[in-house]
C-alpha cells in the first residue's frame, strides 16, 4: 500500500465529529474495493464486511474512528469576526495563527489571528490562551459573513501534510485517519490470506466527543470479538516515559482490565512468532479508546487494543512513523487469519 498518498488523502478530508457524512461516503468507496458488502449506518459509521471462509457464523469487528476534532460557530460579532467553541479536546495554545475552513453555506477560509509580539504586554505573553477569547477572521464584513455562516456551522483545520525524514509523516488528524488507513491495509492484506471469521471493519463517528459511534456500531454489529485501532502518545521531550511510546518501534498492544487477557496474550505471542516489532501499552483502567465502550456492549465483547505511536496529538502536526502503520496492518491481518473455526466460546482467561 502507498501509505503516504493514502494518508495525505484522508487526513486532509474534513470530517468533524457529528458532521462526517461526506467523509463517510468517501471512505465507503475506499472500503468497497476490498469488501463483500459496504454500508453506512444512520449515524454515518462506515461498515465494510469481508466474509470469512469458515463454516461457523462468527464475527470480528475492527474499528478505527474517522472523525476529527474541530470547532463550531458560536457567534458573529459586528465586525464579522467569528467566535467558536471546540468539538473534542483542543488546547487553546495551538490555535494562534492557524488556518481554518468554515463549512457554512459554502466553504470559507479563515485565520485565527494573534497579537503581534511587539504589542503584547509582558503579563499577556505569560497567560494561557483561552478558546473563548479567540475569533476567526475571514476578511469578510459582518453582512457578508452573515450571508453564508450560521451559528452551529462546523469549522475544520486546514493544515497541509508533510513528509518528514526517516519515514516519518506529519499531518492534521492522523488521530485517527492513520487508523482508518490501517483498516484499508488490513483489508488488502486479508485478500491474500485465509481467515475463518467474518470481519466487520468499522470506521466510526463521534469518537472524539464520547465514543458515540462505537457504542452504536457495537450494538448493531454485535461482534464475537473486537480489535480497536487508535493512536497512542509518541515519545516527546519533557513528558513522563511511562505514558509515551517510541516512534518506529512498532504498534503498541494494550494490556489491562479493558482488554481481553487471553486474546491479548495470543496477540503478543503472534507478534513474537512473526517477528513483528511491538510495544506494550499498560492500561490500568479506562483506555480512553473505543475499547472502553465496546467491551461492555450488550452482554460483553472480548476486546483488544492496538495503537500506533503518534507525536503532538490533537495538533495540526501530528506525526507518525510509517513502519508502525505498516506493522499494525501486518500484525492485525495476520492475527485475524489465525482465528480459526476451532475457537469456540471465548472465556475470560
Amino acid at each position: 500500500m502507498d501509505y503516504i498518498s493514502i494518508l495525505k488523502d484522508i487526513s486532509t478530508y474534513p470530517g468533524i465529529s457529528g458532521r462526517e457524512e461526506k467523509l463517510s461516503k468517501y471512505i465507503k468507496r475506499m472500503f468497497a474495493k476490498y469488501c463483500d458488502e459496504t454500508i453506512i449506518d444512520q449515524f454515518y459509521n462506515v461498515i465494510g464486511i469481508k466474509k470469512g471462509y469458515g463454516k461457523i457464523n462468527k464475527k470480528i469487528m475492527v474499528t478505527a474512528h474517522l472523525d476529527e476534532i474541530g470547532f463550531i460557530v458560536k457567534g458573529i460579532d459586528e465586525k464579522g469576526f467569528v467566535s467558536f467553541s471546540n468539538i473534542g479536546g483542543i488546547d487553546g495554545k495551538i490555535l494562534l495563527a492557524q488556518e481554518v475552513t468554515i463549512h457554512g453555506k459554502k466553504d470559507i477560509q479563515g485565520i485565527i489571528g494573534a497579537k503581534p509580539p511587539h504589542l503584547l504586554k509582558p503579563e499577556e505573553s505569560k497567560k494561557a490562551v483561552n478558546i473563548k477569547d479567540l475569533s476567526i477572521d475571514t476578511g469578510l464584513s459582518y453582512n457578508e459573513v452573515k450571508e453564508c455562516v450560521e451559528v452551529g456551522d462546523f469549522i475544520s483545520f486546514s493544515a497541509k501534510p508533510m513528509v518528514l525524514k526517516n519515514n516519518k509523516f506529519s499531518s492534521k488528524s492522523l488521530d485517527n485517519r492513520a487508523g482508518v488507513a490501517i483498516l484499508i491495509d488490513i483489508m488488502e492484506r486479508l485478500d491474500k490470506l485465509r481467515y475463518d471469521w467474518d470481519v466487520h471493519f468499522v470506521a466510526t463517528v463521534q469518537e472524539e466527543v464520547g465514543l458515540r459511534g462505537a457504542i452504536i456500531a457495537a450494538y448493531n454489529v454485535c461482534p464475537d470479538m473486537a480489535i480497536v485501532l487508535d493512536a497512542c502518545h509518541g515519545d516527546i521531550p519533557d513528558v513522563s516515559k511511562d505514558s509515551v511510546y517510541q516512534l518506529g518501534k512498532g504498534p503498541a498492544i494494550g494490556i489491562g482490565p479493558n482488554l481481553h487477557t487471553k486474546l491479548t496474550k495470543e496477540l503478543i505471542e503472534y507478534a513474537k512468532e512473526e517477528n513483528i516489532p511491538y510495544q506494550i501499552d499498560v492500561e490500568p483502567g479506562n483506555t480512553g479508546t473505543e475499547a472502553w465502550a465496546i467491551q461492555v456492549s450488550k452482554t460483553g465483547v472480548p476486546t483488544l487494543l492496538v495503537s500506533f505511536p503518534l507525536k503532538y496529538m490533537h495538533t495540526t502536526v501530528e506525526t507518525v512513523h510509517l513502519n508502525d502503520i505498516k506493522n499494525a496492518g501486518k500484525l492485525i491481518s495476520g492475527f485475524i487469519s489465525t482465528i480459526g473455526n476451532e475457537m469456540g466460546e471465548i472465556s475470560c482467561c
Partner: peptide
Amino acid sequence: IKDRSIICH
C-alpha cells in the same frame, strides 16, 4: 445543535 451529551443528528 449540540451540548455536552450530543451533537444533534
